[in-house]
Design a protein around this nucleic acid. Structure first.
Lengths: 358, 358
DNA sequence: CTGAAAGCGCTTACAG
DNA sequence: CTGAAAGCGCTTACAG
């Protein structure tokens, strides 16, 4: 391992000067010296010793990847293909830019603070955090951070968030379903509960997805549905329970509605697939009797029969964007745009059939 | 942050003594002093500064998680639910034991060596490595390591590997299918290619899965099939191509065989689900006409219709075991058992139907 | 414009 | 049995 001292020796200067060049404290160094040192640095592929960096309180080049949730639909969230893909993208981008990624379990705030300070982490990427939890964490920890998919109930984002264009996704589905002959299609999504100070709080009932992705999706959907002067009632926004046992019963009762409207826009692929199976088990055919559109384009979407028509989002792109923005912040840049929306695209497969002769 | 100096001050001794106690160089310290220092250490929850540890060449408490493969079936391997779950288990176990996990992209050997030495990593967990690649890595890097699911072509393992009891899994399936009335069931698995020095090498044709998991699965399956004095020909081991386009054609040609034998044991859930869909698309009903058993019990297994009967393995347990063993090695223990097999269990769902009246 | 010196928190011969 | 001192590789006032 080549040390700063070695570089200094080669250049015939002191360590201080090398350090100054390295840290851009270049005002008080002659251009000639700078060039010489830079060249030697390059030639020798100098990399500072990590221990020293941490010890002197300088950047560790570590990015903490904080995983805020543990369970989704009863499965470990890390089984969610989403997490893995996101992590891979983040890690790859980090590597390219000379950063390292350390895993931090986000369940215990205390742990996050502990690890972040112990390792002198340069920045954090947080996933699965609610706005509330993030704010609570912020009080204890002052770190540059980019969140992924953390929506806010406020009008404006005052933290860095990377998400997708939910509104446009909903809009695309709305237009598509209308075109396919379903002007009465409904939007179905699972209720969201948010933890506030240990207690679960159900969201506002007349605005069930206040500030969350499903609100944007619904708004886009509604917009498309109303485009030709039609009206799309709020009653076409159906909120179902978070527990499968209850949800199942709700689906049961909704069957007549499903058959009548003919097409359903589900808030997630998970729910879409679950519903396809449910309908299948009840002898109802998709898409012959009911058309279904999902959201996410997860791996399963191509497995299920009928193959699922859904809104594709690039998880890898999300991870890359989050990482890139974080690094810009670390480099001292002030980002003005707080909420970056990655584009989405409707992928047409086999779960929607054109309605003829109504 | 509390430093060693602080502890020394409290105890009224020098840093050296504290360090000696901390590092177990306890011979030359009086018992009284030891006890006193230990108590103070505890009370103050002393944690050594990481930068110092790295700088002085002592343990960094970092475990490198090396991901050896990038793509499985055309998807990023990290989308494989398996990876995420494994990672979560490893990370959780690490945290409990006071270790940290750093992500290392395993594609480039050079990078692995670089990062491992730069961070003074204490050990490595490798996933998705072939035996060859691991040996190649070992030449460049001397690190304690535990591999996950890396089989060897040799008779004995000379490296630490954590896997599952593939033989028993195959055996359980064999017995089950026999009991369900399918004494002629076949085993189908995708061919495996192994990279040797940049070139892909196809495995031995008369022993297509030499040393790999599918060989164990087949052996267990065969054993069960032969239990009552029956014979199970090697011809019931069907190797299909790794490329879907080709494999599809093979399936097409095999349809009569499928219908005749009535039951198929697939080498993975992936292939099982793929085949269920293929048969579905060809108007063949599972399990009415063909029964199918998978292997892995991935998340999809419960999604697919019919729900897949398959061999369950606990990925989380695997990760935990790998981590625990690595830590024991780091602590200087010499592990005698080289290949740990986690138990597996057949999970019966709906993809196998009892054959009546043949 | 440049360098000698102190300091970050630890370990490890070595002297007592 | 215990401690003063040097060293790990870096940064940062500070003096020149």
């Amino acid at each position: 391992m080549i040390r700063m001292q070695d570089i200094a020796d080669m250049a015939g200067v002191s360590r201080t000067t090398v350090s100054n060049v390295l840290n851009g404290k270049t005002k008080r160094v002659s251009q000639e010296t700078i060039d010489k040192i830079r060249k030697i640095l390059q030639e020798n592929e100098y990399e500072p010793n990590i221990g020293s960096m941490i010890l002197t309180g300088k950047g560790s080049r570590i990015i903490g990847f904080v995983m805020g949730y543990e369970n989704v639909h009863g499965y470990s969230s890390t089984m969610d293909p989403f997490i893995g893909e996101l992590m891979a993208a983040i890690w790859q981008e980090a590597e390219e830019q000379g950063y390292y990624v350390m895993l931090i379990g986000g369940s215990a705030e205390k742990k996050v603070v502990e690890i972040a300070s112990k390792w002198n982490v340069e920045g954090l990427i947080l996933i699965g955090y609610s706005e509330e939890r993030y704010r609570s964490l912020c009080k204890k920890l002052n770190q540059k951070a980019v969140l992924v998919d953390t929506y806010t109930i406020k009008e404006e984002f005052d933290y860095q968030n990377v998400g997708i264009d939910d509104y446009d996704g909903g809009y695309q589905v709305g237009r598509y379903l209308k075109r396919m002959g379903y002007p009465d299609a409904i939007f179905i999504a699972e209720e969201t509960r948010i933890k506030v100070n240990e207690a679960e709080k159900r969201l506002d009932s007349d605005r069930p997805f206040h500030g969350l992705c499903n609100e944007y999706r619904w708004n886009g959907f509604k917009k498309a549905m109303e485009e030709d002067g039609d009206f799309c009632s709020i009653r076409r926004l159906v909120v179902v329970n978070g527990k499968w046992e209850i949800r199942k019963r709700q689906y049961q009762q909704l069957i007549p509605t499903f058959l009548k409207v003919g097409a359903l826009f589900m808030g997630s692929d998970y729910n879409a697939i679950e519903l396809i199976n449910f309908l299948h088990d009840n002898g109802i055919k998709v898409p012959e009797q009911v058309s279904i559109v999902g959201f996410d384009d997860c791996m399963y979407a191509e497995y299920i029969r009928p193959r699922l028509t859904t809104v594709h989002q690039s998880v890898a792109k999300k991870g890359q964007t989050a990482m890139r923005r974080l690094i810009r912040m670390i480099n001292g840049e002030i980002l003005t745009e707080m909420y970056v929306k990655e584009p989405v695209k409707l992928v047409i497969r086999d779960s929607v059939r054109k309605r003829t002769g109504i």
